[in-house]
Nucleic acid binder design. Structure first.
Length: 484
RNA sequence: GGCGGCGUACCCAAGUGGCUAAGGGAGAGGUCUGCAAAACCUUUAUGCAGCGGUUCAAAUCCGCUCGCCGCCUCCA
């Protein structure tokens, strides 16, 4: 398995510290507002990485934190006239709702900053003792100049940073780029007791404390959005390595951004969509598949049009599943096996290899999806050849299993076609019930028996206008929700 | 200004030295169908922003130019 490591700026063979266990820490969210689709991307990317690692047989310990105390939470609490912990609780709950919808699994450990105050204080104390940090008036800062490798990770010149940026106002830090480990609380702000008086943790220190506690001094993978590379991860490395004297994370994985009109989606620009807003219009599987249809490090341009296209492509999968089911239920006459059957068997045999090859290459989900859709086409082609023979059912069964198994790594394709259409009825706001549709189909079937085509066609058209497509098959008429 | 990334068909998107440049969506034509839908087949890049170079061989490596974006402040 090869992974692009931000640390080296190139793809590296992945070798876990421990041959069977992989330890992953991903930076989670600050719970002060609803999550937007960018948060979803990061969560889904690491969810897939973790799933694929498990698929490959690794025992994964996955840690993803919540930042539940920080300036933004305090500000939000002030705005809403409630306490900070109520804000944190509310948006943590909302986060879970969103992630559950999107099929993002819970991490094995989900630590919160405020549950690790003692660990944080211990590290800050240790850093002061080792001479890497200093206290000024109840706040503690990390002294960047003391840490030799500072800037290496984000490829910034430390000397230049130390010399420049003197715009800092009213700070008594030794150097403007020194960053807070512990912040003295102002009157009325939430605070915890510490050797330096009442205060709260700085932003970066919580991740050092929580990863150290739950994964140890050195672990395999650390990740998050690419905007965390500097200063967050640079600072985390400095703190952690200064404190433990050991190398921190071995592989650093960063996902790219979602863009709107080519610009980064962000809170400050206001060009964002919340997960809730999108899920009101699109099925979660569509969102998930959309986010996986581009390599995780590349930017993705968000648009409804793209989502609709993905919706149509997922429908292609479920339509094929229906075809397989119809075929398996028929259980036709058994004959000699044919050449098409042998070719199809080859496709199936090589499929898993191609899927893994794609995923092994820095989690290339876009390519993996390409292989999946290639298999779907081959299944359809095989079915069109009207195959018969002792092995046909077995092959189709195997193909369906492979699609579901690889889909499971991406956590897509996990439902039945019926569930898919039921969900589309809701997201596409089809103003009809299944019973009403069946009733119309029955009427149309009667008309067809009488060969009253005009009536039959009118019913078809009516339903289509409401978003329902009819499919006449040998033994009856099926319906589905129109996509795209 | 410093550092980094991107530019592949009508749209999205893999591919980063060598078989016919994946896959999805859209369009056109066809097979099938009472008509459809679905599926399949054919078709839409002698071409990978432009120019030059390295090489037997480049979308893929190097240089320059143009265009777009990100980080350098909180940020997934």
């Amino acid at each position: 398995m090869r992974i692009y490591n931000t640390l080296s700026g190139s793809k590296e063979e992945f070798i876990p510290l421990n041959s069977h266990g992989v330890k992953i820490y991903a930076c989670g969210v600050t719970v002060y507002d609803y999550c937007h689709i960018g948060h979803a991307r990061s969560a889904i990317v690491f969810d897939v990485i973790r799933r694929y690692m498990r698929y490959k047989g690794f025992h994964v310990t996955y840690v993803r934190n919540f930042t539940d105390i920080d300036d933004k939470i305090i500000n939000r609490a002030r705005q809403e006239g409630i306490t900070w912990d109520v804000v944190a609780k509310k948006y943590t709950d909302e986060y879970y709702k969103d992630m559950d919808m999107l099929g993002v699994g819970r991490a094995d450990i989900e630590p919160k900053a405020t549950e690790h105050i003692q660990e944080i204080i211990d590290i800050v104390k240790g850093l002061i003792e080792k001479g890497y940090a200093y206290e000024i008036d109840g706040s503690v800062y990390f002294e960047v100049e003391k840490f030799t490798g500072y800037g290496k990770f984000s490829k910034r010149d430390k000397e230049e940073m130390l010399a420049g940026a003197r715009v800092e106002v009213d700070e008594r830090k030794k150097n403007p780029i020194d960053f807070a480990l512990w912040k003295k609380s102002k009157e009325g702000e939430p605070s915890w007791d510490s050797p330096w008086g009442p205060g709260r943790p700085g932003w970066h220190i919580e991740c050092s404390a929580m990863s150290l506690k739950h994964l140890g001094e050195s672990f395999d993978i650390h990740g998050g959005g690419a905007d965390l590379i500097f200063p967050h991860h640079e600072n985390e490395i400095a703190q952690s390595e200064a404190f433990t004297g050991k190398p921190f994370a071995r592989y650093w994985i960063h996902n790219g951004f979602i863009t709107i009109d080519k610009e980064k989606m962000s809170k400050s620009l206001g060009n964002f969509f919340t997960i809730k807003e999108i899920l009101d219009k699109f099925d979660p599987e569509v969102v998930r598949c959309f986010l996986l249809s581009t390599h995780y490090r590349s930017p993705i341009e968000f648009s409804d049009e793209q989502l609709r296209e993905v919706e149509s492509s997922i429908d292609r999968y479920y339509t094929t599943v229906i075809r397989i089911q119809d075929f398996l239920e028929k259980d036709g006459v058994k004959k000699e096996s044919s050449n098409t059957e042998k070719a199809f068997e080859q496709t199936i045999v090589s499929f898993r290899e191609r899927f893994e090859e794609a995923m092994d290459d820095d989690f290339n989900t876009a390519l993996a999806l390409g292989h999946i859709f290639e298999l779907i086409r081959d299944v359809n082609r095989f079915l069109d050849s009207k195959p018969s023979g002792p092995q046909v059912n077995e092959l189709l069964f195997k193909a369906r299993e492979l699609l579901m198994e690889t889909g499971d790594v991406l956590n897509i394709f996990g439902r039945t076609p019926i569930e898919w259409y039921r969900s589309l009825m809701v997201t596409k706001k089809i103003g009809l019930t299944g019973e009403e549709i069946c009733h119309r189909i029955k009427e149309r079937e009667d008309a067809r028996k009488r060969k009253e085509w005009a009536i039959a066609d009118r019913i078809r058209k009516e339903l289509e206008e409401k978003g329902i497509i009819l499919e006449d098959k040998k033994d009856g008429t099926d319906w589905k929700v129109k996509t795209g």
